[in-house]
Design a protein around this nucleic acid. Structure first.
Lengths: 329, 329
DNA sequence: TGGAGGAATGACAGCGCTATCATTTGGCAC
DNA sequence: GTGCCAAATGATAGCGCTGTCATTCCTCCA
């Protein structure tokens, strides 16, 4: 590391640990200890090294450190999309729990596309994260195999799969659908509809919803598959003409549907009841206030983070959900 | 790399490139080429190596690759919080632009805290990202110095600082505030208020807002500083009693304010006009539809990503904004 | 007063790749 | 045939750290 020239502050290349060591007159390993295990270094030495780091503007190279120690202090996070408040809360929970511990978060989006999911999974694992947290379960067998072979903690969230790869922090989507259908039936609704995506979690909600509706002796409910953004909700209103109750798989979509319904002149909840999922903050503030199945995305994230840090305790956490009936149903 | 035992599929440790090479009967460098520069390898050799990778379940170790090549193929992204739709869109834009190119995204949150921002900046830079994108500018001189010394592309977003570290993709916050005040004045409002955080960008909006209000001969406008979530907006309504027009620094907060105003019996826009910022999708769907200053967070993200990839072209991109007057003002 | 034991520091090798420069081989023009 | 060049493959060294053992120097008590 440049033995000829004397080490000096403010060179062009970022200084290495060895340069800091030379500047402070200690061995490289001592500098390494000052960074990672300061208690092992005598106070005067430590101060000398710290002064050297400051003078040279030393920023440790964690890439090299990770390779040497086989610990990257990073976790991979795979979500369908970040532009959905529902997952943003989960990311926030993960990040808040992990950043203070020195872990970095690698973020990737699958866009609800199994191929892209596998690609992103491979890309994340290539960075050797110490754990991986994902929304849902791998869509393909290849993805599941990669995760299993990685031999790191894997947390599946926003669902409660029967055969998880490792750990789970989520809730029972089937039950959520069932609870909403039961509520609709109990409040005298007869013609039910379900609006949502066709990913596995939305499908499970639909299955629970449909089962209970049929068990209650109602007509077969209608399932409408749409994009997940609020604009799509507006458009979907048209397809809901004959119905008197709709369960919408996410709150943003539900707010859109409310808007569409309003423009069609249908009164909520008198003509149609609407229940969303996620408990978006704005849902509770609009008029009429949106009824919803409350899911605590941030707690899911924090719990998932906890499951990656410690392998003790139960590996399957059901965080549950809560039906909040406000004004729309 | 375990020369004694014959290389075999499905061992417990993840296989290394050298093991794949031994299995395929080629040298390590050839396997490396199959992964990175397949065109350089003859087809039969390539197929043999690919078969070996598949058989052993090889996942390249990018940590080692990064150290050897001094290219991490990652970018750091620092936002105040991900749980704000406004920044989630930007992250989405960044991620959508960069992931197809093989870049990974390191995400960190500053929580609007300068100390935490510096910590996160240091943590990100320690991972040796090839570029760094942040919302706003570094809050401290130390943070700015770290970024400058890192000698990587740095993109500041959501603002247009006069002395950027490197590149900028944002809009003029001062002007945004000014435009809203001008609109309020032109539509006959007299008692203006500003509701928002006290971060530099919100403050710039306030400054532009205040200046124009005073220039228009209106009373000195009121500034109310609050938390940034929608719930805080509800609470803020009380402090807005005397006003007939409020500019709210973000749409979620504005929706909260609308709710608070409604509960106080104040009519919008007859008694009070409200204009938000961000153009949250739900803002346009609620009743009355929220007027807002539209900012395209996703385009900011994509543009910022573009500025990290290429150093050519202008390093300062003003993406502008648009005042959308809907029903609340 | 000798040696056990802890505190402080260092030497050395190696993590799993890739940059760089060889080397080998075969095809082709003359 | 000879020489030349491109295509294909390999040998070597090293990226910037850390794990694992030394080694040195005290202190403290039998």
């Amino acid at each position: 590391m440049d033995e000829s020239a004397p080490p000096s502050p403010e060179t062009d290349e970022p200084p290495t640990l060895a340069q800091v060591a030379a500047y402070a007159g200690v061995s490289p390993i001592t500098v390494s200890r000052v960074v990672r295990l300061p208690a092992l270094v005598a106070v005067p030495t430590r101060q000398r090294v710290e002064a050297a780091m400051l003078a040279l503007g030393y920023v440790p190279n964690l890439v090299a450190g990770s390779l040497a120690s086989a610990r990257t202090r990073s976790v991979g996070v795979l979500v369908p999309t970040v532009a959905n408040a529902i997952f943003a809360d989960t990311i926030q929970g993960i990040s808040d729990a992990l950043e203070p511990l020195g872990y970095a978060v690698f973020l990737a989006q699958s866009r609800y596309d199994p191929d892209r999911e596998d690609k992103m999974l491979a890309a994340l694992l290539a960075r050797r994260p110490e754990a991986l947290i994902m929304v849902g379960s791998p869509a393909t067998a290849a993805g599941a195999r990669m995760l299993r072979r990685a031999r790191i903690p894997v947390v599946e969230t926003w669902d409660l799969p029967d055969d998880p790869i490792d750990a789970v922090a989520g809730f029972d989507n089937t039950k959520a659908g069932a609870v909403v259908a039961r509520h609709f039936a109990a409040s005298g609704r007869r013609l039910l509809g379900f609006l949502g995506g066709d990913d596995p979690r939305a499908t499970r909600r639909w299955l629970g919803f449909q089962r209970v509706a049929l068990e209650a002796g109602l007509d077969a409910p209608l399932r409408v598959v749409h994009a997940r953004n609020a604009g799509a909700g507006v458009a979907a209103a048209d397809g809901m003409r004959g119905l008197d109750a709709v369960f919408v798989a996410n709150d943003a979509l539900a707010i859109g549907l409310l808007s569409g319904l309003r423009h069609m002149g249908r009164r909520v909840p008198d003509d149609v009841a609407v229940i969303g999922l996620g408990d978006l903050e704005t849902g509770r503030l609009i008029n009429p206030a949106l009824s919803t199945v409350r899911i605590d995305g941030e707690t899911i994230g924090r719990t998932a983070a906890g499951l990656t840090i410690s392998r003790d305790g139960p590996r399957r956490v059901d965080l549950g959900f809560e039906l909040l009936t406000r004004e729309t149903g």
